[in-house]
Structure formats: C-alpha cells, structure tokens
C-alpha cells in the first residue's frame, strides 16, 4: 500500500504509539497516508479506537514478525 509518511513506534508502550501517531498526523495534509510500525500488542485495539474516535480511517493493518503495521489516512 502506498503511504506518504512512516512512523517508527517500535518498542514503545501505551500511550506512546497513539500519541506519536496523533503528532505525526498533525504534520500531514488531508488524504495523506501514515504507515505506523508498532510492537505493542495493545496498539491493535488502541489504533482502531483512535481511528474511530478521531475519524481518521484505518485503511489496513498487518502483523508480521511480531510487528504490527497500520495504514491510517488523515481525514
């Protein structure tokens, strides 16, 4: 999937993946896609909750080698 910006949130615990995602989105323009890498298993539910509450659509998510990858579109 195409993306415009990458965020490395590996080895960070709650709430840093969410807070750093928010900060990364702040620097982007509407329609751009952010790719987030996380190793926090709690971030699976948290990213979905973040997307739902902020209205930034979570386009896709993958899990590979103990890492979680999220694609979030800035609303």
């Amino acid at each position: 999937m195409n993306f415009d910006k990458e965020l490395n949130a590996r080895n960070l615990s709650c709430p840093l993946p969410i807070v750093k995602t928010k900060k990364a989105l702040n620097d982007m323009t509407s329609g751009q896609v952010l790719k987030v890498f996380s190793t926090d298993s709690g971030s699976v539910k948290d990213m979905a909750a973040f997307a739902e509450q902020t209205g930034n659509p979570l386009l896709a998510q993958e899990e590979a080698n103990g890492e979680f990858i999220f694609y979030m579109k800035k609303k």
Binding site: C14, P15, V19, K23, F50, Q53, T54
Partner: peptide, 11 residues
C-alpha cells in the same frame, strides 16, 4: 499523564 496525553491525542 497517560490518560491526559491519550485523551488529548483523541481530540
């Protein structure tokens, strides 16, 4: 601090 930063990130 966790709740405050998270809530702020959520708007």
């Amino acid at each position: 601090f966790i709740l405050a930063s998270t809530a702020a990130a959520l708007g």
